[in-house]
């Protein structure tokens, strides 16, 4: 990375009150304050947001795709965690 490059930030936007912040992309900024303002100008020009989170990219830790099988496959046979697993009569209401 070139010496004078501003660090990269990941941008999360809440599109309206009541919803989660969602990752929308990234951008460069010299500091957190500037990252928020840049995000305002870059990612909310069309009223896409009401709240912004920024995280410097280097602080994001991600799971490794190589672990995907051991991470996620074990959940696939635990169908009893889902409501449809249970066989109940149709007459049963409000459940």
């Amino acid at each position: 990375m070139a010496e004078n490059q501003w660090p990269l930030w990941e941008i999360f936007i809440r599109s309206k009150q009541g919803l989660d912040h969602k990752h929308v992309g990234s951008l460069h900024a010299a500091d957190a304050q500037m990252a928020i303002e840049n995000a305002r100008d870059v990612y909310t020009r069309r009223m896409e947001g009401v709240s912004i989170w920024v995280v410097e990219s280097k602080y994001v830790h991600a799971s490794n795709p190589d672990d995907a099988a051991s991470f996620y496959d074990p959940a696939s046979d635990k169908v009893y965690r889902h409501p449809t697993f249970y066989d109940l009569p149709d007459e049963l209401k409000h459940m």
Partner: peptide, 10 residues
């Protein structure tokens, strides 16, 4: 820089 080009255009 792009980010500030966008900011000033705004």
């Amino acid at each position: 820089i792009l980010e500030q080009d966008i900011a000033l255009s705004n």
